[in-house]
């Protein structure tokens, strides 16, 4: 009997749902997410406003869509930034080893030893808040984990016979690293990237929650959570919508990467 891969099935369903929702959000939202209306202040879900309105009378559904989109973009670029830099660092240290490896990996440890929130706080306060700087701050934080995994894969694969054979054919080091070794490390890197994406979503939300991420008036899931705290009991739909979107993003992608990992 073949066991059904429920992780994959639910992962695909949730992720597809979220992606479709957010793709719509890029081009169209039911209301202007920044349009205030005092009359609708903290009104509950209704046919006109399916997730209700916030403390300024703005449509929560529209804001969740816009906030989700900006969280998604920030996470994607953060992971790409960390992945590209991490792979380059890991490739060189893993392939060459020796002193270079020792020095760079200890620098990596230093970067890793800072609490992540503190580190991003420092960078954001140096560069100033804003989407770009959040990407840089979080991206830097993501380098060590990618570098470490790439390094271990490279130092394992570089001793394989086919890499030795490539060397004996006169293949130059850069080509060996990125044509012969990297494709063989992609499997491991893919699952790391999926986990990294989830971490990025959560990290971005935490930064915005603390007020150093996306700046008003741009909507952001993390800041919506922070603002809704005050109205937790009078308008629970506010907190639930923002938190629910974060959960859907992380859960869908987590299940998807788990399910993909289970495929033989």
């Amino acid at each position: 009997m073949k066991k059904r891969n429920y992780n994959l099935i639910f992962g695909i369903i949730i992720t597809t749902f979220v992606v479709i929702l957010l793709t719509i959000g890029i081009f169209w939202t039911p209301y202007d997410p920044d349009m205030m209306n005092v009359k609708l202040r903290l009104t509950g879900p209704s046919p006109e406003h399916i997730l209700g309105c916030d403390n300024f009378g703005r449509d929560i559904f529209s804001r969740v869509l816009k906030g989700g989109v900006s969280t998604l973009w920030i996470s994607v670029f953060t992971v790409l930034f960390g992945l590209v830099c991490g792979v380059i660092v890991g490739a060189f240290t893993g392939y060459y080893g020796g002193v270079l490896d020792e020095v760079v990996m200890r620098l990596n440890d230093v970067l890793n030893s800072f609490p992540s929130i503190l580190f991003s706080l420092v960078i954001v306060s140096l560069l100033g808040p804003g989407k770009k700087n959040v990407v840089i701050a979080l991206g830097l934080l993501f380098i060590p984990s990618f570098a470490r995994i790439t390094r271990s894969e490279f130092s394992r694969i570089k001793n394989m016979d086919y890499v030795k054979c490539a060397k004996l054919e006169g293949v130059p080091p850069l080509r060996i690293m990125f044509v012969h070794i990297l494709p063989n490390a992609v499997n491991t890197l893919l699952s790391t990237t999926a986990i990294g994406f989830n971490n990025a979503v959560l990290a971005e939300a935490s930064l915005s929650f603390l007020g150093i991420g996306v700046q008003p008036p741009d909507p952001s899931l993390g800041r919506m959570l922070a603002e809704s705290q005050t109205y937790l009991f009078s308008a629970p739909w506010y907190t639930l919508s923002a938190g629910g979107m974060i959960i859907l993003l992380v859960l869908g992608f987590g299940l998807l990467s788990d399910g993909l990992g289970d495929i033989e």
Partner: peptide
């Protein structure tokens, strides 16, 4: 140069 284990000597991907 040819090696002892031909299968391992070729890049699997």
């Amino acid at each position: 140069f040819i090696f002892q284990d031909p299968v391992a000597s070729l890049n699997p991907l």
